[in-house]
Design a protein around this nucleic acid. Structure first.
Length: 879
DNA sequence: TGTTTCACG
DNA sequence: ACGTACGTGAAACAA
């Protein structure tokens, strides 16, 4: 027997409301570039996908209310009279939802004077007559009156994901009435949300009892004389008209004069191309990516020439700007092998799976004679090329770097994504190469086609990005800072830093012992063994079994973080042991074991700096992270394992002193703060004098200095009294007094803070000294937290970002200086405000002069930059 | 995959 | 009446 036709009837308004409020708190995250909100569209879209999945309908109709009154408001002018008007952010999305339905091949309908409910009711009746199976989707329980053996009403439960299926049986079981009686019940009870009265004084309990006895409102009033004299009887008699009117209002009509019929509900399926345009217009990336997975855009057939001995001449004859790339499958280009490379011109793309061709002298000569080469991820290509002794000096444009500067948070690290953002279709690497266990080189045809399309995308994107950079006033930042920096970083990564494994292993053995001892001690005190590394288990032991006071909770349970444990450690010795255990096991797992795992056969650590990740312009470091090697406490000993790569060499280190506060003094123009730096005073003591109202530095106690230091940090982070209070353990009132005092003493700092927030509100972004941008969409959020966060970021980013700019300039100049001076010393690491070198002992005095000179002259501020240096036989000693 | 914790500036 | 310090990465657990 063939399956019956399946019809899905959706209450469009109800679902749009649900969709809108499901992501209401993220309203501001869901906007497109024109500021149109998309949260409801986004959720509605997901709902449609899951409904199709779940019900596999043949026919669909989404019914909407039409604005203006209906026949119900004509009968009873207060009908739905107490409803707030839907918010503008939702109303603007309703037309979008309807377009979305069109593109999905789903019918929608609305009718003057009639509600969506009546459209659904009418179609449900017609479908029943035609022998179809109907499912109604709504957030409104009133529609359960439509349930029959062939009509199921699915009502959304909490949010939009879960549905509750109302069949007549289920309704009877759950509410105690039949679908028809549901209307009688509403008639007696009334409905506060639809604002009709029912019978005054009759609630659900009484209504149910009466319906059980009399079957319906008609039955009740036909036999009302049989009721014993009572208050209820009086109420019923008094409310008779209201009861009938309310029943009438509650009744979903099944005879609406629809201009459409069942034939018009056919689900014709999505139009992928239209959907693609729709998602693109609304910047709905997630939906777009999902769609591209299901139905990859038809790629224009890409032509390519596979490089061979026979046609090498053709490649070498190319004399125009090219796109170039050496492709690798995995992230870590220090360990990855090339899977191929390509050269693209406007008219042809040359591809190869044989990277050794890059070693050919004629290829190298030809490449080095190019005027313009465009790549994606310069640093990655530099490292890859180095394996074939190839320099890539002519590369003058990195699409990745350009796109990062244009908008650091929209950077996906994938050419496909960047292309898509510029309305250029290109498959994502992940979709061509797979990911995780499925990562593999595809067949040659697919691989080379992808190469060819990438080459074309690179050439095509370059002029647009170049223009955008110029429009943002970022051409200098791109050409003179990020592009040269990529070369500096690639050199630093390739040199790497030598790790003396033996030193770490010995430390590891000691840690192992400590861990064992501490473990036993803790188990003994707890009276049981458990997984100490599990915050969950630890929380249960401490706060349930041992009954320690709960100080803080996380969203999943008890917090066991240091600040909590430290408060407990005075009273409970076990907690002190746990803190010690945590400290040692962190060193063991992350640093001893982690670093040893990352060591390559040359005994060195080759980290990768991520140049296009942070929102502020800082670098980050991965595989392993060399920017968070312990610098304080016992952990600092880890640094002893980092040694020079040659006998007789030393490690040299220079760091900027208080660079962020100096940057703040400069960009705020605050005379008091500038004076402190110009006279090289202790800035924290200076601040202490100011906020505590002291006359001389002698009066500053260590504790005052500590609090002033925290306040200085707080200012840089975009202060809040709460945050400062928490950090230094004072009351919020005191913290507020500190901040007020601070702003009084450094008035222009206060002005700066206000100015940055105002600028973010006005332009949507803030900038560093070198025009690095960060967009802050949430500055306009009506969510307090998101807005406050954006305001703090507006204050902090120009400071942190300008400091990052400055050290980047210093790095570029330093690298050049080492070369110009013919020094053997080399730059190894950058840790935000610190540069680490290695070199022959004899060069240490030279570095001692040169490095601070280059660093403090990297930029000319209204205050001096201060640099402190030191050197020694290991990183530990270079302190 | 998300959460918690902790290492750095 | 809200619940916050800014920027990162890695390990381990808990799903």
């Amino acid at each position: 027997m063939a399956d019956k036709t399946k019809l899905l009837l959706i209450d469009g308004n109800s679902m749009a409301f649900r969709a809108f409020y499901a992501l209401y708190n993220q309203l501001d995250k869901f906007t497109n570039k024109d500021g149109v909100h998309t949260n409801a569209v986004f959720t509605f879209n997901n709902m449609l996908d899951s409904l199709i999945d779940q019900f596999q309908p043949d026919n669909i109709m989404v019914a909407f209310d039409r604005s203006g009154g209906t026949f119900r408001t004509k009968k009873f002018s207060d009908y739905k009279g107490n409803r707030d008007r839907a918010p503008q952010e939702l109303l603007e999305q309703l037309p979008l939802v309807k377009t979305l339905l069109d593109d999905h091949g789903m019918a929608h309908y609305e009718l003057q004077d009639w509600e969506a409910d009546d459209i659904i009711g009418t179609l449900a009746k017609q479908a029943e007559a035609a022998g179809w199976e109907t499912t109604v989707i709504t957030g409104d329980r009133d529609l359960t009156q439509l349930a029959t053996d062939h009509v199921t009403v699915q009502v959304t439960k909490k949010g939009v994901k879960e549905l509750e299926a109302f069949t007549p049986e289920y309704l009877k079981e759950k509410v105690g009435v039949t679908p028809k009686q549901f209307i009688d019940m509403k008639g007696l009870m009334g409905d506060t949300s639809d604002n009709y009265p029912g019978v005054q004084g009759i609630g659900p309990k009484t209504a149910l009892k009466l319906l059980d006895q009399f079957g319906s409102i008609e039955g009740l009033y036909d036999n009302i004389d049989d009721l014993k004299k009572s208050k209820m009887k009086e109420k019923l008699i008094a409310g008779k008209d209201d009861a009938f009117m309310s029943k009438d209002l509650a009744t979903i009509r099944q005879d609406a004069p629809l201009e459409i019929g069942l034939d018009d509900t056919k689900y014709t399926g999505p139009d992928m191309d239209k959907l693609r345009v729709f998602y693109t217009d609304l910047d709905m990336r997630q939906a777009l990516n999902k769609l591209n997975k299901q139905a990859p855009a038809v790629q224009p057939k890409a032509h390519y020439v596979v490089i061979s001995d026979a046609n090498l001449e053709q490649l070498l004859a190319v004399d125009e700007p090219i796109a170039f790339e050496i492709e690798m499958l995995t992230d870590n280009y220090h360990t990855a092998d090339a899977i191929g490379w390509f050269v693209g011109t406007e008219s042809e793309v040359f591809v190869s799976a044989d990277a050794t061709l890059l070693s050919l002298p004629q290829v190298q000569t030809w490449l080095n004679a190019r005027d313009h080469i465009t790549v994606f991820d310069l640093k990655r290509n530099l490292v890859a090329a180095k394996k074939y002794d190839l320099n890539l000096d002519p590369v003058d444009f990195d699409v990745l770097l350009a796109s990062y500067l244009l908008n650091p948070d929209q950077n996906a690290n994938d050419l496909g994504q960047i292309a898509q953002d510029h309305d250029y279709t290109l498959e994502f690497d992940e979709d061509v190469y797979g990911k995780g266990a499925k990562l593999a080189v595809p067949d040659e045809e697919q691989l080379f086609s992808h190469f060819a399309r990438k080459a074309q995308a690179l050439l095509s994107l370059r002029p647009h990005l170049t223009q955008d950079l110029a429009d943002h006033d970022q051409s200098g930042l791109f050409t003179d800072m990020e592009m040269p920096l990529a070369r500096v970083l690639s050199a630093m990564e390739e040199v790497g830093i030598t790790l003396e494994a033996k030193t770490l292993q010995e430390m590891g053995e000691q840690y192992e012992q400590s861990i064992k001892v501490l473990q036993e001690k803790i188990y003994g005190q707890a009276g049981l063994e458990f997984n100490l590394n599990s915050p969950k288990q630890l929380g249960e032991v401490l706060f349930e079994k041992l009954g320690l006071p709960v100080i803080k909770k996380t969203k999943t349970g008890y917090s066991t973080s240091v600040d909590v444990l430290e408060q407990l450690s005075h009273d409970y010795p076990i907690v002190k042991d746990i803190l010690d255990y945590r400290a040692v096991s962190k060193l063991q797992s992350t640093y001893v074991k982690g670093l040893l795992k990352a060591q390559l056969p040359d005994q060195k650590i080759h980290t990768r700096y991520l140049q296009t990740l942070t929102q502020t312009g800082r670098l980050s470091s991965v595989d392993p992270n060399m920017q968070n090697i312990p610098a304080r406490g016992d952990g600092k000993l880890i640094r002893k394992a980092f040694v020079p790569s040659h006998e007789g060499w030393q490690i040299f280190s220079s760091d900027y002193s208080q660079i962020e506060l100096r940057v703040l003094a400069h960009i705020s123009g605050d005379a008091n703060m500038q004076e402190a730096f110009k006279e090289d005073r202790d800035i924290h003591a200076n601040t202490a004098m100011k906020i505590f109202g002291l006359d001389s530095p002698d009066q500053v106690t260590p504790d005052m200095r500590r609090q002033a230091k925290a306040t200085n940090f707080g200012i840089v982070y975009g202060i809040s009294d709460f945050g400062l209070a928490k950090n230094i353990g004072i009351t919020r009132r005191q913290a507020k007094a500190f901040i007020d005092g601070y702003f009084e003493q450094y008035p222009k700092v206060h002005e700066y803070m206000d100015k940055m927030v105002a600028q973010a509100r006005e332009t949507g972004f803030v900038e560093t000294l070198f025009h690095r941008r960060r967009y802050l969409d949430q500055i306009h959020s009506r969510n307090f937290n998101l807005r406050q966060f954006a305001e703090r970021t507006a204050m902090n980013t120009p400071i942190q970002g300008s400091a990052a700019d400055i050290i980047k300039v210093a790095m570029i100049r330093m690298q050049q200086m080492l070369k110009d001076q013919n020094l053997q010393s080399r730059m190894l690491l950058q840790v935000h405000d610190e540069l680490i070198f290695e070199g022959p002992e004899a060069e240490m005095p030279i570095l001692g002069k040169l490095v601070p000179k280059v660093m403090d002259s990297a930029v000319d501020l209204d205050v001096p930059l201060k640099v402190e240096s030191s050197f020694g036989p290991t990183w530990y000693d270079a302190k």
